[in-house]
Design a protein around this nucleic acid. Sequence first.
RNA 1: GCCUUAGUAGCUCAGCCUGGCAGAGCGAAGGUUUCGUAAACCUUAGGCCGUGGGUUCAAAUCCCAUCUAAGGCUCCA
Length: 635
Amino acid sequence: MRILQFHSDYIEYTPIKKEILKADDNVEKTQTRLEDLVVAFICIEENDDEKTIQSAILEIKKYLDIINESSLLLYPYSHLSSNLAKPDVAINLFNKLEELAKEKLIKVSKAPFGWTKSFAIKVKGHPLAENFKVFDNKNQYLKSENSLSQVKSHNITHESSALSLEETQKSSWYVLTLEGNLVPLDSFKISKNGSFEKFVNYETQKNRKVDEQPPHVKLMKKLAIADYEPASDAGNMRFYPKGRLMKSLIEQYVTRKVMEYGGIEVETPIMYDSHHPSMASYFNRFPARQYSIRSDNKELFLRFAACFGQFLMAKDFQISYKNMPLKLYELTRYSFRREKSGELVGLRRLRAFSMPDCHAFCSDMDQAKTEFLQRFDLSIDVLTELGFSITDDIEMAIRFTEDFYDKNKDFINKLVSKFNKPVLVEMWKEKFFYFVLKWEFNFVDNLGKAAALSTDQIDVENGKRYCIEFVTENGIKNNPIILHNSPSGAIERVIYALLEKSAKISKSGGHPSIPLWLTHSQVRIIPVKDEFLSYCMDLAKKFQSNHIRTDIDDRTESVGKRIRDAEIEWTPYILVVGEKEISQNYLNVRTREQGKQFQIILDDLIEEIKQKIGDKPYLPLNLPYLISKRPLIMV
RNA sequence: GCCUUAGUAGCUCAGCCUGGCAGAGCGAAGGUUUCGUAAACCUUAGGCCGUGGGUUCAAAUCCCAUCUAAGGCUCCA
């Protein structure tokens, strides 16, 4: 039995003429079009039997799992062999194959057997898209080749990755305590209703049914931060002026922190040639999750992480052990992942996102571990400075192989004690994928959903896979261990978490807010009458020259209305300026934080605000400073 | 991909069950008001009721199909 499989954008076929007597009846001679599926061209050979069918279907299912596809077309295709089975045997086995496939897969269809058919097919542009397999009657899986791809022996890696996917099932869950005890999850007493409990449930249980729309989705619209863009693909957001400003500030902040740590900023292309030789193993890691673009004769895909561009760059560097650890950094705008449409949620899960990604190339495991601890501190620092409390908002998961744990208990316990709370552990019997250890900081939102922010990994494979080399003290070339750190996680996700956190505060009766350094209008000035406008403009200039974003509500609305509007925008400082303030030279301030009014002189207020902002990045207002000049973005 | 829900004015939504002139609030435009800490007042303009078909004297409303989106499931290296 021979199977030629294509991962296809579409196939169209039309039955033309019945070829053999026993061919399928009730066949309409109309065109069938199917989209996004695997087309399996199959021929049944002499000596094939039910066992052959069974092992074939397992292989087909494995292939669909790997490329993450659920639709299958079984297409009888005799031209693959010169040793065909007799038609009546073949048709019988073919129907069995269809039955079995329907038991195991979601969407299965079959083209008619024994008919001449015309067909047109469009095959997707990634190395795993084309695949050929041969089985004999002892249900042995004989050989498989990417016969049409230039990447020879590719299927061997594909095979091993399929096997290791099964290994995934063998992971087991524990809690690692501050005392360094690895307690099986079942016997660990988790305190009720805490975020750790929610996090553990989210990670380990299947039932995640929630009926509400996440609060941050409402907020991102209401505060005119971001919105869905109907004219793009789902999961590609538009960012309004306030959201863009917020993103820029967070991006600048994270980038500065990573550069202070020693990261060297680079920029790499967002698209790559699918047929470049080094793509094969990359695809094997992230199969069929990318956007693809056809341009002239090239099949390009959009990157889904920065790893790749940085590895290709590091490969061309001349690196000595003296340069290690070498840290490359890029904040991708964007990385693209074609998540399934149903998986996308507001700013939590996107198809296009901005990801800070810092790789450290280390000479050996000792150096890697030392570096790893530094980056752990960096990540805690970044999240804290972004406005999260590690104690209240963040839960940690750590995943490692049993072998690595046995050899590195002290090291792992050190991570936990730095985190200073119990940690959820997923332990694997054996290594799969490319890392031996990986941790994440997760934010748990209002609906009990967890989203990973910071993360770091110890990667022991890709140095070799990408031929990255450094010269050791002895003059030998060696492959580095690579650490993959994102100290903050995707920038959009940081905004999601900030909004969810403020929704949590508002739920419990507090005043929701956004960190001062990230709010668009830090100070809003409201002149009581038009005649005070020029005084207010002078005032605004003084704030702005001190890097405090200040605007003026010069609309002809009542004072009450303008205060209300400022509060709806979550403006942290509202100044009402009238005769009293001008004649007596003080300011009347209404703060969001304390929700009360007080009087203060200008210089003191500037000092207070500057102190609260600290050394966070500054950018000027991203909208006209007179409200009357602004378009209305959200009601 | 599957399940559920929703598409009506710029925005948020009512009307649909039980068919009978297309509605409200906010926002916008014009005007009056110059106001002291969470919504001043008046006037006006805004519509292919997602799209296509069907039933009916008559469809936003009932039926069928279809598109789009959201939420959930699955997935999440």
